[in-house]
Simulated assay, not measured.
Amino acid sequence: MKIVIISPLWERTPPRKYGGTERIVYALTEGLVKEGHDVTLFATGDSVTSAKLMSVYPRSLYTDGVSWSNAYWPSINISKAIEYSRKIKADIIHSHSQYYGYVFSPLSPIPMLHTHHGTLKSQSIGKEKQATLDYFKKANYISISRSQREPMPYLNWVGNVYNGIDVDSFYFNARKGQYLLWMGRFTPKKGSKEAIIIANKTKRKLILAGKIEKNNRNDYNFYKKEIKPLIDNKNICYVGEVSQGKKVQLYKNALCLLNTIKWDEPFGLIPMEANACGTPVISFAEGALNETIKNGHNGFLIKPNNLNGMIKSLKDIDKIDRLTCRKWVEDKFSVSRMVTDYIKVYQKFVKK
């Protein structure tokens, strides 16, 4: 098949550090090329890919301080992708640009599929995004978990494909570590403050690794006022926004990952990455975590906002077998499984 993939422009594909969507786009693109498909990737000019790369901007928009609300470059990216797809007579356009892509759907002569990577709850997305989804409800949507669909079951869902990770790049460690790990972006809904509270109450060392969003005033103020004063770099340590290699080292040497999220997570790559290294996950039972964590198998699911429940489950963390965590990801959340599932969705439209 001739496939055109549209990646967001906020980060490089793959991201050098933080960036879940771009990491998934990279893995999917490489997997499709490996399967012999003719793939073109529309992404930032500094992206790395085995596919043909097309770009309208030389580097990540985030690097240049472009606002998340800026629609100019994403719109040009999608418009160019549709124009190019028409020229080469592509079979499928697969957009990961979310709302920007939905608006272009009726204008594309090529079947256009959209993976929605975010939440759909109205209180989280706001009136404008909800109106966009309602207006373009006939677009071809692909979910990344069953729970993600629940707020808007009436959208034209054409498939569900769980995200996949390159398991071989996450090295397994059968020996448990001693520290707790939190990883993510410093924003209230990701639960970094709750992880610190748990670490202090249990008198365990906590390592925080993640992105400080300086372009987002609310998130940056949250970090400066709520998180930074609690970091002593002895018991509560912040190691920055880490590279892939450093991230793997942190995962595989941790006692467990604290996934103290406070929102309806549509998938959650970080828990699966930790599992791939053998590290169990203790998570609040929010959103897709009810699908990716099997309680007592590869971690523990705790009632949302129940810090005491998390603290109690830490006492049982040794009951989780680290090899079981690894096999869980290999069986259910590998890149090869993700690529196969996406190809099945594509074929529905190629046959038409």
Rank of each mutant, 00 (worst) to 15 (best):
3 I>H: 06
164 G>D: 14
156 N>L: 04
231 I>Q: 03
288 A>I: 02
31 G>R: 12
150 E>P: 01
119 T>Y: 09
299 G>T: 02
65 G>R: 08
97 S>R: 14
177 G>Y: 07
327 K>I: 04
127 K>T: 00
276 A>H: 08
298 N>P: 07
273 E>R: 00
125 I>F: 12
282 I>R: 08
259 N>W: 03
42 F>Q: 08
145 S>D: 06
238 Y>V: 03
127 K>F: 07
340 T>G: 15
143 S>D: 05
37 H>Y: 14
246 K>T: 11
77 N>I: 10
51 A>G: 01
188 P>S: 04
146 R>C: 13
225 K>R: 10
302 I>S: 09
237 C>L: 01
237 C>S: 05
4 V>L: 03
68 W>I: 11
40 T>F: 05
274 A>G: 13
162 Y>R: 06
264 D>L: 10
342 Y>Q: 07
79 S>I: 04
327 K>P: 14
312 K>Q: 14
2 K>A: 03
351 K>H: 12
137 K>H: 15
151 P>T: 04
241 E>A: 01
269 L>D: 11
223 Y>F: 12
223 Y>I: 00
94 H>V: 05
133 L>Q: 05
180 L>G: 06
117 H>V: 05
183 M>D: 07
236 I>M: 09
351 K>C: 06
173 N>W: 04
100 Y>S: 11
77 N>D: 07
346 Y>V: 06
321 D>V: 03
44 T>W: 07
107 L>D: 05
1 M>K: 05
269 L>T: 11
340 T>Q: 14
339 V>S: 07
135 Y>I: 12
123 Q>C: 07
52 K>L: 14
307 L>E: 09
338 M>P: 10
305 N>M: 15
168 D>C: 02
147 S>E: 02
2 K>H: 04
126 G>S: 09
316 D>G: 03
306 N>T: 04
214 K>S: 05
9 L>F: 13
277 C>Y: 01
202 T>D: 11
197 I>S: 06
168 D>P: 02
90 A>K: 01
237 C>N: 14
